[in-house]
Amino acid sequence: MARVVVDVMLKPEILDPQGQAVQRALPRLGFAGIADVRQGKRFELELEGPVDDAALARIREAAETFLANTVIEDFTVRVEPSSAGGAA
């Protein structure tokens, strides 16, 4: 089985309240030296069939219309190198 990862991040200009909350907490907990934090979402999609162009196009469509809110978020799609030894 092949795995495709979709990473969704808020666009750079958009406020990220969660990331800021984490950033504010870090020094309080003794983790110094971190200038900025952005928090996103990661989707791991296990495909039934092979990862071909058609499959990736479908996933991009799913990401654009459903997984990400493209008004405020960007996304990237990448194929995870197979870890189970199966050919992709």
Partner: peptide, 11 residues
Amino acid sequence: PSKRPAVQVGD
């Protein structure tokens, strides 16, 4: 989608 302006996010 790509032409939409970025809106503000509130906290």
